[in-house]
């Protein structure tokens, strides 16, 4: 993290002033000075990290207190597992191949469903943004289907697909498809026409303009779509697994409730949270790799 003060605009240098003055002798700054400078420049970031850790610890503490004293105040904490109980079941679960299988299967469904949504949604959005006719044909259908929550698709998905696995992947796909499509479309609609003209009078033809201008210009919005889509993919996946799964972290959480294993409920929830966080970090990292010009 860098503070805005770091962004410097290099001075205009006249082409005439080419010959540089002899460099004055500089003594390298001591380690102490460097460390101090580093601290000053990164103070904001360090502060955020410190406060973040304190905040998480405070959350755990409140949770611990509420459950140890079995607080009943509108909501009842009588049966809620304590953080220590959840930690105990976590240490047990990571050695349990069945728990790992639950997680692996959920991840696989996300990878299939989400990748499919990205592979279909991004190109479709790009094409719809470029060719009006495709937009006019596809958009009304998309607008009617879009408001239907992915969970409402569960019965239909079961009818449509021969196996349970396929219908869950389908639901995950549907959940992430629309955010990806809509954001890609939005990105295309915001492409600066002057950049297109600049490309044209540098000799670019339709295909090059698409590849060199429209696509990179839409990338920030495409990645917004991917981030939102990943979030909705997890929401849809967990719902589908709870309803129709035999495996998966959503099924694990629901099963824990049926088997009255309260600590496992919280463990399942936390696992979902961590997986969701991890996958959105992955997308953000990918975005920074693909769009180096947006690094601050």
């Amino acid at each position: 993290m860098s503070s805005p003060a770091l962004v410097r605009h290099p001075e205009d240098s006249m082409p005439a002033i080419a010959e540089a003055a002899p460099a004055p002798a500089v003594t390298p700054p001591s380690f102490g000075t460097v460390a101090l400078r580093w601290y000053r420049l990164n103070r904001g970031g360090l502060r955020a990290i410190a406060i973040g850790i304190i905040s998480l610890l405070a959350f755990l503490l409140v949770w611990h207190l509420l459950t140890t004293y079995r607080v009943v105040f509108f909501v009842r904490f009588t049966n809620v597992p304590s953080p220590l109980a959840v930690y105990a079941s976590f240490t047990k679960a990571i050695h349990d191949p069945k728990f790992l299988l639950h997680i692996a299967l959920s991840c696989r469904r996300i990878i299939f469903g989400f990748s499919l949504a990205a592979i279909v949604g991004v190109p479709l959005g790009l094409i719809m943004g470029r060719f009006k006719l495709v937009h006019e044909i596809v958009f009304p259908v998309a607008e009617v289907l879009r408001p239907i929550p992915a969970i409402a698709w569960v019965p239909m998905a079961i009818m449509l697909w021969p196996t349970n696995e396929q219908s869950i992947v389908f639901i995950t796909f549907l959940g992430s498809f629309f955010p990806i499509l809509i954001n890609t479309l939005h990105g295309m609609s915001l492409v600066d026409p002057v950049l297109v003209r600049a490309a044209q009078c540098l000799g670019a033809r339709e295909r090059s303009i698409f590849r060199e201008v429209y696509f990179p210009a839409s990338l920030p919005h495409i990645f917004t779509g991917l981030t939102v889509g990943m979030g909705v993919a997890w929401v849809s996946l967990i719902a589908a697994e709870m309803i129709s799964g035999q495996y998966g972290i959503g099924y694990f959480t629901w099963e824990a409730y049926s088997l009255v294993q309260y600590a496992d409920i919280a463990l399942g929830m936390i696992a979902i949270g961590v997986l969701g966080l991890g996958s959105s970090l992955l997308i953000r990292g990918a975005g920074q790799l693909v769009m180096p010009w947006r690094l601050k």
Partner: peptide, 28 residues
């Protein structure tokens, strides 16, 4: 129609933000 025979410079600079300075110059 536009063509590389007629170079154009715009008030809003209109450099491609996703290309480095050299890549911008190389584009044509």
């Amino acid at each position: 129609g536009p063509s590389a025979e007629r170079g154009m410079v715009f008030q809003q600079y209109s450099l491609f933000p996703w290309k480095t300075v050299r890549e911008n110059v190389e584009f044509g």
